[in-house]
Design a protein around this nucleic acid. Structure first.
Lengths: 192, 192
DNA sequence: CTATAATTAGTACCAGGTCACAAAATTAGA
DNA sequence: TCTAATTTTGTGACCTGGTACTAATTATAG
C-alpha cells in the first residue's frame, strides 16, 4: 500500500480546492493525511493556489458570516428602507444576491421576496410591534440574480390595532409581487 | 493626564464584556489601549471572566455562523423534512429559535413561517425546480420562541406543470398557519 | 504607615502557520 | 538507460496572539 496519489498534482490541486471549499476549517496536517502527502506539499499547493492559511480562512468566514447574520437576522426590516411614513406609506429596496437564489434556476426564493414585503408591511404599522394576520399575495414573475426589487407599501385602512396594507414589489417598473396584508399592532406606542 | 480608570475593576469588567460582545474580533492589545490598562490586565480580566482568546472567539463565530448560513441559506428546504412523497404530501418541523423572533415581542417573524411552508410546497413539486406563483395564507396565531412548528403539505391538484398545494402548520396540534399555494415546476435550464 | 488588592512585567511555551533554502525521490524525454 | 526536470520532503528561523505562571510594582483603605 504505497502512496497512490503521486504526480497527480493537477488532480490534487483540484481536490484540495474542493475540500477546502467544503470544509474551510481543515489544518494543513489534516489535509496532508487526507491526500497522503506531506505537510510541506500541502503548504506548497496552498501557496501555488493562493489559498490562505487556516486562521485567515476562519477569520474571513467569521467576519463575513458575522456581518451577514447581523444584517440579515437582527435586522427588523429586510431590504433597505428608503422611505417611510409610519401609518401611511413606505418603500424599500433589495438587491437579489447569490445566497437568495435557488441553485438550479437562478431565481430568487419566494421567502426572500415575502420577507421584504412582510417587513415593510410591519414597519408601516404604527405600534411597538406588529404581527402578520393574513396575507393574500401573488408572485407575478420570477426575480433573477442581480435584480433590485423595490417594494412599495401603503396603509389603506386602519381600525384600532388592525391594519390593511397593500404591498407591490417591482423590478424596473415591472410588477413582480402584489399582495394584501392584514396586520395587528400591539403595545401601541402612544402611551408614553 | 494620568490613568483615569484605576481600581474600577468592576466597571471595566462590565465594559469589557460589552465590548467583546459588540466586537468579538478585538485583540488583547486593542482592548488594553481602549481601556487604558496593560495587556496583562486584560488577560487577567478575560481569565477571570472566562472569556476565551481571540482565536477561540473567531473560531466559535465562524463555526456557528457557517453552520447557520449553510443550513439557512443553502438549504433548499427550511425546517427538517420528516416525510416526503413527492407530488403527494410531506411534512417538516422547525424549532423557533432566538434569531427568528422579533426583538420586542418574542414572536416568530412571519417570513420564517412562510419560508418553512413555502419550501415544503416547493419540495412537493415533482420537477427539477419550482417557483411560487401565488399564495393565499393566514397566520392564525403568533408562534413563540421555543415552539416547534410542524408543517403539513398536500398536493391537491396538478395540471401539467401547475400545482395546487395546501399547507397547514401547527404547534401542539393547534393551527398557526394555513395557506393555498399555486406553483409551477420546470426543468432547470443548464446554460453555461 | 502598612497590609491588601489591583496592576504590570517578564519568562517559557504553544499552535499553526510563514519564508527561504536544500535535498531526496520520482518521472519523463532522448 | 542515463539525465534533466518535476515533484515532494525536510530543516531551521521567525511570526502572532495567545496560556500559565511568578514576581515586582502601585494604589488605596484602614
Amino acid at each position: 500500500m504505497k502512496k497512490l496519489t503521486r504526480h497527480h498534482k493537477q488532480e490534487r490541486h483540484q481536490a484540495l480546492i474542493e475540500e477546502i471549499e467544503k470544509n474551510p476549517f481543515s489544518t494543513d496536517e489534516e489535509l496532508a493525511q487526507r491526500f497522503n502527502v506531506s505537510v510541506s506539499t500541502i503548504r506548497l499547493d496552498r501557496s501555488n493556489l493562493g489559498i490562505p492559511e487556516l486562521r485567515e480562512r476562519t477569520r474571513a468566514v467569521a467576519h463575513e458570516a458575522y456581518d451577514t447574520l447581523k444584517s440579515l437576522e437582527e435586522q427588523e426590516v429586510i431590504g433597505l428602507l428608503t422611505e417611510l411614513k409610519v401609518g401611511q406609506m413606505g418603500r424599500s429596496a433589495m438587491l437579489i444576491e447569490e445566497n437568495m437564489v435557488l441553485d438550479k434556476a437562478r431565481v430568487a426564493r419566494g421567502h426572500h421576496l415575502f420577507a421584504q414585503a412582510n417587513s415593510l408591511a410591519i414597519a408601516l404599522v404604527d405600534a411597538e410591534a406588529a404581527v402578520t394576520g393574513s396575507v393574500d399575495l401573488k408572485f407575478l414573475r420570477p426575480v433573477h440574480l442581480g435584480e433590485t426589487v423595490i417594494a412599495y407599501g401603503k396603509v389603506i385602512k386602519r381600525k384600532g390595532n388592525k391594519y390593511w396594507v397593500d404591498i407591490k414589489a417591482q423590478v424596473n417598473q415591472e410588477d413582480v409581487l402584489i399582495g394584501h396584508w392584514i396586520l395587528f399592532g400591539f403595545k401601541a406606542e402612544i402611551n408614553l
